[in-house]
């Protein structure tokens, strides 16, 4: 893209000054980032029936019969993004994705996909439960995945 002929006034509109940035740091920004995470596309291997696999992260979280490795892939993805300064995803949103992936693997697959202690995991899940941009259905599932609740069979 060559900006030489671009209208400077339009370029100026791209720039947000600090007060606007601060406003962006609100929970609305986290909610937007969370919803953007849910929209992330997923790719299925060619040997899996197309209709069986979720097409994005949101579908994965609502999948009736998810596989533990899906949650592992999601957890690893979130972990990388949470710690890399160049990630386009807000840390608050990917941190929530990280704990949701671990919690749902525990709840729906009866599998632990983390080496976190129960205490550490409970702390992370409780933090996620406090975020008002997590929808109610997911919040209920996540509460059931707290380590003081027994893991349930798939």
């Amino acid at each position: 893209m060559d900006l030489i002929q671009a209208n400077p006034a339009h370029l100026a509109e791209l720039i947000e000054l600090e007060p606007e940035i601060r406003r962006d740091a609100s929970s609305q920004a986290s909610r937007d980032a969370w919803l953007a995470c849910l929209a992330l596309p997923l790719t299925s291997p060619s040997d899996v029936a197309h209709s069986d696999c979720p097409h994005n992260v949101g579908e994965l979280l609502r999948h009736p019969a998810p596989q533990a490795e899906w949650f592992t892939a999601l957890k690893d993805y979130a972990k990388h993004h949470a710690h890399h300064p160049a990630s386009p995803l807000l840390p608050s949103a990917v941190t929530a994705v990280y704990y949701v992936a671990i919690g749902l693997a525990r709840l729906r697959c009866g599998t632990s996909i983390t080496q976190l202690s129960d205490q550490e995991l409970a702390k992370g899940i409780r933090w996620t439960l406090k975020q008002n941009w997590i929808d109610e259905d997911l919040r209920e599932d996540l509460a059931r995945a707290l380590p003081n609740s027994a893991p349930q069979p798939p």
């Binding site: 720039i15 947000e16 940035i21 937007d32 980032a33 929209a39 596309p41 386009p88 995803l89």
Partner: peptide, 24 residues
């Protein structure tokens, strides 16, 4: 881009704007 709703596209645009300003 295969979004499920216009709201999803708007949310992604907000994410993009923040990314642009962080990069700037």
């Amino acid at each position: 881009h295969g979004f499920t709703s216009a709201e999803q596209a708007m949310n992604t645009l907000n994410t993009a704007k923040r990314m642009f300003n962080r990069t700037l």
